[in-house]
């Protein structure tokens, strides 16, 4: 039993690192998911987890020529899930233009194994996904943008010169337009 769960974990880790998870492999993940649930979850080491200061340090201080598109979302947030394909498409179409997409999950840390990881695999998300684990939202929300009510989805588009904040849902066309016009 223990060995099996270790294997499942190894498989998950392996998949998490893969560029393009194959369909067959994704199905395997679905079947090992129950296995994971039966066992005590191993901290959310499967996706990078940050508090706000760490997140800010890692992504909000752009020094390269890249444009970062940072989207705050959660697996339980319907409008967030609906707009994710637009972000995936943006990453794919504009990678050559140094556009980087970071999907900052606000899922509860205890739901990473049973909700976030399976979701990433099922949707085949290839954008970078990180978890923001910082309960004191009243302190960090205004640091993202003073106008943010705290509702998600919310997105920041930034490069080393400027940044723009959006509390709204995007279609691909709207998103691309904002990135190009930043």
């Amino acid at each position: 039993m223990k060995f099996l769960s270790l294997c499942s974990l190894a498989l998950l880790l392996f998949l998490g690192c893969k560029e393009t998870p194959e369909k067959e492999a994704a199905e395997n993940v679905a079947s090992v998911e129950t296995e994971i649930q039966e066992n005590p979850p191993v901290a959310s080491s499967l996706i990078p987890t940050y508090n706000f200061d760490e997140l800010e340090e890692t992504y909000f201080k752009v020094e390269s020529d890249s444009t970062y598109v940072i989207n705050f979302w959660a697996t339980w947030c319907k409008p967030c899930v609906k707009e994710l394909p637009a972000f995936e498409q943006l990453r794919e179409n504009h990678a050559a233009n140094k556009v980087k997409v970071v999907l900052v999950s606000l899922d509860f840390p205890e739901h990473v194994e049973k909700a976030v990881i399976p979701f990433i695999e099922k949707k085949g998300l290839e954008s970078e996904v990180v978890l923001l684990d910082d309960p004191d939202a009243n302190t960090w929300i205004p640091k993202v943008n003073p106008k943010w009510s705290g509702a998600i989805p919310a997105t920041i588009i930034l490069n080393k010169e400027k940044s723009k904040f959006y509390e709204q849902s995007f279609t691909y066309e709207e998103l691309e337009k904002e990135v190009i016009s930043l």
């Binding site: 009510s149 705290g150 509702a151």
Partner: peptide, 10 residues
């Protein structure tokens, strides 16, 4: 006034 994460109103 304070801020918190929440679900957007549907």
């Amino acid at each position: 006034e304070t801020k918190a994460i929440g679900c957007s109103i549907k």
